[in-house]
Nucleic acid binder design. Structure first.
Lengths: 220, 220
DNA sequence: TCTAATATCGAACACTTGTTCGAAGAACCC
DNA sequence: GGGTTCTTCGAACAAGTGTTCGATATTAGA
């Protein structure tokens, strides 16, 4: 049995990455020493360098792998969907779901965004920019179709990311509402907040013909 | 001239704090060495220790001073105001205003929340908890009076903090909308999002007698 | 079983870190 | 001017850092 989808090497690397992410998440990237990782993985100090070339490359591997998964999952989810508001809802659900299920990695991605430098930083950041642009475009579409006025799209987009990415500072899956509840709450606050008076207008004039009732987005 | 409101010592300490906060904000607390601070302030390495007992105490001084100002400003602002929604609006405005005007310190407060330990951590955190509780209580009042249902107050409160505290990751006062615009956008998104269907209901049934028209909160 | 590639290790290096200490300068009051 | 307190400094220390290197195990294929 020589070749599975995951080679022995890959499995070991992923194990190192997951263990490191947990420590990075707990005490921060810069306060974590390779010796900490060595202790936690049971591998020797120098043995670790067989799996990464430097501590910073390890950080990159974690961030890149984690973010690539989020975005590719997201693209798969919204492919074929037309309604931009529904797309946004799916994006938020996916983002929060992955965040909570991979809290360590996502915390490292969010919190250590500036601990990575040079080409690694550029690579991660260009993916982030694409993701942000996707959200900004969705918001633009929604705004146009629903007649949202007076909101800055950049502020709106980063407000949404703030709501989502801040959760590593407070969310505790043992005490708080579950992930789907979290997603429902955040989607509702943001989307109904983004629509704002447009939502009121839609209700008043009852022009629901060319616009889906916004409420339907988070109900059922 | 021996005694002004700010002694020579105080002025020097504040200068050290401000300079340090700028470096902490730029490269992170753990990646900043006392030698960096020495270089930036023009003081000698050991000379700095006349103003703080340890690097971590310096971090505490920055966080504590910064957060104490935000909260005391906030309390002064909302004292005497009755309407909880207006209180919340003022809190958001104050928070964002101070954040943008003291971006370095607030970034250190937000980003380095876990870089501080022991009693220092406890002291800063108990103040934070009070601040969070204030927001949660305001949201509770608003929810009760306006008939908001189905939202988790903890999620809502931290969503708001996420929107506000995330700005150090993206906001650029040279390119983005100004602070008042930022506050208007965020207040509108959050408050109208928090009210949600209650806002629609209020419009439909026109029962504005015992509830202030929510919209009025961010208009004028 | 031999061989070559893969994987792991201990020991060491060069460097940076926060902090201390005793002494010296500066400012102030009598 | 003398003495006291406040402020600053250079030099050093002990500890911890990321990384390297040569040498071993361990595995897999012939």
């Amino acid at each position: 049995m020589s070749n599975e989808s995951q080679s022995k090497y890959d499995l070991r690397l992923v194990h190192v990455m997951k263990t490191s992410a947990a420590i990075f998440a707990e005490k921060g990237y810069h306060s974590t020493s390779i010796r900490d990782i060595s202790r936690a993985t049971g591998m020797s100090l120098s043995g670790l360098y067989y799996y990464f070339a430097s501590k910073e490359e390890l950080l990159f591997l974690i961030q890149d792998y984690c973010f690539s998964t989020v975005t590719s999952d997201c693209k798969r989810l919204i492919a074929g969907v037309d309604d931009p508001a529904l797309k946004l809802k799916l994006l938020v659900e996916n983002h929060l779901n992955y965040f909570v299920k991979n809290m360590n990695e996502m915390k490292v991605l969010s919190h250590e965004a500036n601990s990575i430098t040079g080409d690694w930083f550029k690579k991660v950041n260009s993916k982030k920019r694409q993701y942000v642009d996707l959200v900004k475009n969705l918001l633009g579409e929604i705004a146009r179709s629903q007649g949202v006025k007076g909101l800055d799209l950049r502020v709106a987009a980063f407000s949404l990311f703030g709501m989502m990415n801040w959760i590593y500072n407070w969310y505790d899956s043992r005490k708080d509402v579950d992930v789907s509840g979290l997603a429902r709450n955040i989607t509702r606050i943001f989307l109904s907040g983004f629509l704002g008076e447009a939502l009121v207008e839609a209700e008043k004039t009852g022009r629901e013909s060319h616009l889906e009732r916004p409420v339907s987005v988070w109900q059922q």
